[in-house]
Design a protein around this nucleic acid. Structure first.
Lengths: 190, 190, 190, 190
DNA sequence: AATGAATGAGCATTCATTCAT
DNA sequence: CATGAATGAATGCTCATTCAT
């Protein structure tokens, strides 16, 4: 679903591309988008030239990282949304998106700063996810699990905010869980 | 460690410093911390040399912007905390901190990325604010306005998260208000 | 006449700018436009940053070199054209332009390759020279010194061609002179 | 040292080599020698590897293009020189060489810039042509069609210069013809 | 003190050439 | 033999910081 109709890519080339994406994801997430391309290439065990062959621009690499992430989230939410009661599906997807979104904000900013309709390639997966989330929200509201006055935009803002809150907390699960408690309690109809 | 004993600063120097801080705050908040120092200086109507006389490092400028913001928040929360019932004071300060924190996250990251004990000069105001917030939280919990199991760290994370959520929303007050509703509802004891 | 209404430029800055132009002229003419900016800067005794402060682009440096050359030619042809009989003025300017044009062709190509209306800043001096040359040609034709059927464009092409011919010859004056003889003889009315 | 004893080259290999030469000639002539090898290979419908198998260096490709051109000119001048009066043969070859030399100058420069005895493989055809041209010149001078004081080097320079002049003119034949008129008139004995 | 010119390490990107498939 | 992925030195340009004016 990622490469739209391009020749299959040789085995080693595909491996390099994947390694670059992995390394870039890791590095960008933990150390920010300012990390030099050269270092990413070296960490992936390839030369800069290889990086730029696969991703003609640093921005393109950023985009690819984001796309992969979004596609992953889309696929997972689909699975989650399938077999559960509306309220539980809603909660499960909320958790999933929040956990997967950590560190994602800076990417978006960097991409947006780069210029025009940066979302060109992101629009697809983004809309897919938003559509699914809209469905989940509506279902949860119909079933009485979530306050009916909440709009989609607010729901998305809460996802981003919750993700941000968790970013600040350490890995200790108890405080993280309490954040979820607060948000979920607040989402219930009064 | 930086500003302990300094002579009063000539009138125009003080004016320049203030203008630089104003411009930097504005520019960093709206366009990110990547804006060149030269441009900030020009926007403030001074040469780069002057900027670097006042702030020996770009990082120092960032820090100063943060400090001023934090001190402002500290002063305002003090006023707010003074004459209100615990629950209301808590809510008012929550709103205040959240609104004032918009755009602040990127600063913190940039500072943290710069290296070691970045918080050197930030520690003071930060602790002051945290102390006050800790007091507000305890008061609100004692008065039964806020769930008693919430720790300070979680409270602070919620502040950051709520701020992030608002950043994503436009200036329209209604959605923003709904975010506050959700969070405040979630904060109430069950 | 070169810098349209910019502040006077500090003494040392002006010196650096001049040195950069001198070095660039020399280097581009003798070794081609492919010479790295870094080397030009070093040869001029400044850092790259300084080069790029004065000329925001390598292309801009090329342009500036060309402009200076053209302005020089324009000024000299003006002087030459002033006090001579039409035929002699024509010949003198022909020689001047040809001698000064050596190595200029590659510049023009490089500039043209860089994109759109590269001649932006070159148009002025170029037109000035062409106007003067047009006047000289017309005068020489009226006075019977030059065949009347020659168009301006052909005259200019002959200038370029003669320059190219001389480029190929060594510094020995006799062969160079013979080229001029051939061209001047060919220019006479039959 | 490069092309002395080689086996006949398989049919498709020969075809590839020819296509590469054709494409390179076209591309270098119209867009300059800066065009990437990869693009030339792609335009010829082969991979870069194939290009470098046939021409171990970009410079070698340039050289081969030049050689083919020179050999072509040599063959044609031979035919022209065969059956004509000295004066006409001279003029015909002059025109031929000039027309075929358009765009060739940049090649020569690029090759010269590359370093040492660049002419290694060019020397053969070049000398062949020069010998023929020397013969033509001498014949034309003996027959009284061309001024007797013109040296071979000057003649060659005039060829290059005339070519350059035509390069600057458009495809319109009338101005081009006038350039030839001027040069031919200038070449006549006074 | 203020100014802005100078500095140069650092970065994204290109491209001739090599080599595994 | 052909292919095109990989390589990495080289290049144009930026920007925080210093220092002469």
């Amino acid at each position: 679903m990622s490469d739209t109709s391009e020749r299959p890519l040789r085995a080693d080339a595909a491996r390099n591309r994947a390694r670059l994406l992995d390394v870039a994801t890791q590095v960008f997430t933990t150390r920010g988008v300012g990390v030099p391309t050269e270092e990413i290439a070296r960490s992936a065990g390839v030369g800069v030239g290889t990086l730029f062959r696969h991703f003609p621009t640093k921005e393109a690499l950023l985009e690819a990282v984001m796309v992969r992430r979004l596609e992953d989230i889309a696929a997972r939410t689909e699975r989650l949304a399938a077999g559960s009661a509306p309220g539980e599906a809603f909660a499960a997807c909320f958790r999933l998106v929040v956990e997967q979104s950590v560190g994602k904000n800076e990417f978006a900013q960097a991409l947006a700063a780069a210029g025009v309709d940066v979302h060109a390639s992101l629009r697809g997966p983004t809309e897919q996810i938003q559509t699914r989330l809209a469905g989940l929200l509506a279902g949860a509201q119909r079933s009485g699990a979530v306050r009916p006055d909440l709009e989609l935009a607010e729901f998305l803002a809460l996802l981003a905010g919750t993700s941000r809150a968790l970013e600040q907390l350490g890995p200790d699960p108890e405080p993280r869980e309490r954040i979820f408690q607060v948000v979920f309690d607040g989402l219930r109809p009064r």
